[in-house]
Structure formats: C-alpha cells, structure tokens
Nucleic acid binder design. Structure first.
Lengths: 116, 116
DNA sequence: CAAACGCGTGCCCATATAGGCATATGATGA
DNA sequence: TCATCATATGCCTATATGGGCACGCGTTTG
C-alpha cells in the first residue's frame, strides 16, 4: 500500500458526480423512476454501462431501486447532494468578489502573466 | 482510442473538486493568497504534491497566481464553482422530498431489499 | 419446463491519476 | 556569474476506472 491512485469513485458523492454520464442519470431521474434499460436508451449508453454507473450511484447513496417484476426501477435519493451543495455554497461570496479582485489584480501587475 | 478511462481530472471543476486535498486547498485559499510552500505545510502535503494539485486547479481555472519575488502567490478564483453550485442546486427540492418518499417507499415494499 | 427478457458482473484493455523522489527551472541576491 | 530559495516536472509504481462484450441469474411468459 505504497502508492495510491485517485480516490475510489465509490468513495463519496463528490467523486460520483465527477462523471458526466452519472450526472445525466441523476438529472434524468428527477423526472421519476426508471428501469435500467430505459435509462440506458434515453441517455444513449449501453445497458452494462448504465448498470455500472447506477451501481456507483447506489453505493454512494444517490439512487435506490425497487424491484418491479423483472425490472428494477431506479429512483433518485438526492440527500447525498446536500453536503456538496453546502460545501460549494461556502464559496458563494467569493465567486462574486472574483471579478473585482481579478480587475484590481490585472491592473496591479499587468505582466506577471499566468500562462499555461 | 478504443477504451477510455475516467475523464481527465483536468477536464472540469467537477473532477477537480472530487479530490479531497484539492478541496482543502480551495478552502484554505478563502483565507487569502499563499505561496505553494505555505499551502503544502499548512495542509500537510509535500511541495510537489501541492504544486501538482495547484496545477490541476489552475487548469480548470479555480485558482490563479501572481509572482511575488521568487514565490508564487496562489489565490482563489471561485467563479468556476458557480456552475457546480447551480447544477447541484437543481436537486434541492428533491433532497427534502427524499425523506418522505423513502418512508413511503420503505413501507411500500419492506422486502425488495436493496442490499449491497 | 423452455424461451425470452431485464440486469448485474467478470474480464480485458487503455488511461489517468496520486504519491514519493530527484531534478530541471526561474528568480533573487552576494 | 554562482549559490540559494521556491516551484514545477519527469519518472516510476500501484490503482481505479470506463467501455465493450459475453455470460450468469432470477423473473415472466408461453
């Protein structure tokens, strides 16, 4: 256990929503529960793909499902998004300031360029 | 270009803040600008580590720096967090509903357990 | 009971990290 | 110009994906 790679995607909601397709799934589920196949079709991904993403979302608690015949209806459980909203919200006053700061900033030192 | 791995961490803010240490850096920078070494020390990470995380944050535009002598003062540019806040905010009414839904849910089908 | 359907998994591949370390770069000052 | 301080990078390793595919399983139907 010397070197570590990126934190497991299943570790928390932050990681779970870092993947675009998973964000799409969550967004679509706001409309209501859906079986895997439907989700896959509506979002243009393969069934295995959908299942895998759903698994991650399930493991961090952002979705849940209930069996419905041979299908599994997945539904949203947005509670896990709240902590994220709050964390990001902690920067709210900064993204407003930013502009001003940046201006002062730019004038302040026109040349200490921050290229790539 | 057949198989793809996770989206590059440098691709967007969502990925950038998926890493805990980077979130720590952003949080610390709310206090004000800081040179790399300070950041590293205050957050208990190596200098190279700090530099690397700062690079990612820089590439997605969440931080910027200005040269100050032989140092580089890194500062927060939270504007990039706004889109995230808005995306997550789009689920706000759901994380309140969730509880109720979940209750109904639980009673509704006590046994279609969603284990592991 | 067999065929069909809906899902979840295992396996293989190509990538993209995080970290630790050593070293290249830049800027500053003697 | 050279030594020094502050950072940025390159390299190597162990992991963790994300996708495609084939297949195993449980449920439903015929």
């Amino acid at each position: 256990m010397t070197a570590m790679a990126r934190a497991a995607t299943t570790s928390d909601a932050f990681n779970a929503i870092a993947e675009p397709q998973r964000r799409d799934i969550l967004a679509l589920l706001r409309t209501g529960e859906r079986p895997v196949t439907d989700l896959a079709r509506e979002l243009g991904m393969s069934q295995p793909q959908a299942s895998k993403h759903l698994r991650v979302l399930r493991e961090v608690g952002l979705v849940r499902f209930r069996g419905a015949g041979k299908q599994r209806l997945y539904g949203l459980d947005a509670r896990g998004l709240r902590p994220i909203h709050e964390w990001v919200g902690g920067f709210e006053r900064f993204w407003n300031e930013s502009f001003d700061r940046l201006d002062t900033y730019v004038q302040e030192l026109k040349q200490t360029q921050q290229e790539e």
